[in-house]
């Protein structure tokens, strides 16, 4: 499957992180190879809630642009 940046990932989809260049989010546990699920989007867009392991974190698309992911089948 091809690589895409996280802000383009579809709602409800499950992805695997392939590359991440946003330091702040790395500190929060978003590292390469981790699985991430896109959960919700806020009205007017620009920010989404993700699940990583068993926590929910929301961040802006501006930050999601710095994360490359690959969809996990199934």
């Amino acid at each position: 499957m091809e690589l895409q940046t996280l802000e383009k990932a579809r709602l409800g989809g499950q992805y695997r992180i392939k590359r991440i260049t946003e330091r702040r989010l790395q500190e929060l546990g978003l590292c390469e190879d981790a699985q991430i699920t896109v959960l919700y989007e806020c009205p007017f867009g620009g920010m989404r809630v993700y699940r990583i392991k068993s926590t929910r974190i929301a961040f802006r698309n501006r930050q999601a642009e710095k994360i490359w992911v690959q969809e996990v089948a199934g």
Binding site: R24, L28, V49, R56, A58, F59
Partner: peptide
């Protein structure tokens, strides 16, 4: 413009 914003839920 958009300084980024992280929220933990």
């Amino acid at each position: 413009e958009d300084s980024g914003f992280i929220l933990e839920l």
